[in-house]
Amino acid sequence: MSTSRIRWHIVVFLAPAVLVYTAVMIFPLFNTLRLALYSEVDQTRIYVGLQNFRTLFFDPIWSEQFWNALGNNFWFFLIHMLVQNPIGIALAAILSHPRLRFAALYRSAIFIPTILSFVIVGFAWKLILSPIWGIAPSMLDFVGLKSLFAPWLGKEEYALTTLALVSVWQFVGIPMMLIYAALLSIPEEILEAGEIDGITGASAFWKIKLPLILPSIGIISILTFVGNFNAFDLIYAAQGALAGPDFSTDILGTFMYRTFFGFQLQLGDPHMGSAIAGAMFAIILVGVCIYLFGIQTRMRRYQL
């Protein structure tokens, strides 16, 4: 076969995927970044350079909202890293124990919240935590801690943390499954070799298994990062587009939605919305680069 002739079947095989992907994903992505450089004056689109970003970062009204959303987003991410991933790893460590009975049953049950939609999860927890219905206070009363109850979703200081924990509840299944898979792939010989040296139980986990699953923990961290910085649905379903009370649960996704689509009396502004999308893109890109070049390449991979 001559190499200079176009082999049409390759083109035919590639074309549909490349076309759809380019037209609906890559092109809009760059077009959004381009739109961030424009503004609308008297219904005509004019080029304004970096003006929208200047407004976003330095204008008192905009920047206050932006930094608030960004800070909230980091807190949201931090809670996932500190609560979701350790719980996921712990559950996986228990599940991967050889000869544990009903492991498949536990695994399937714990994964159920992950398959539910944000709308269901948001409203279900809203109802359960509601002081009107009284499930949460009466359960706390049962263990004698009723005084701890507060309308968590309605208080500025607790609402974001509460929603982050609801999200943790929903997604704990994902780190659990991925770590579980990584733990299962550790060969039995290595663990037995450790046993001969007297390393068993908890110390086997810390000294043998944990170093071996570090690459999986890295993948989970970056998945959590990208997922959290592009989150929207749960906050919208539970608190609405205004991310109440008083914007205390506002994250970048809800901020972008409000800006771009408008709400109540404020009109939507696609150009400022694009600027926020540009900021989100930059944050996610930085995160992914830190992972790819800073963490993944330095991590020691063990040949198993």
Binding site: L14, V24, L29
Partner: peptide, 23 residues
């Protein structure tokens, strides 16, 4: 081409929403 198609694994499509809606 493989790298180009793999870009989308890490970048969420939601970032391009404004232009998608316009299109």
């Amino acid at each position: 081409m493989g790298l180009y198609l793999a870009l989308g694994i890490m970048i969420p499509i939601r970032i391009g929403t404004v232009a998608i809606l316009e299109m």
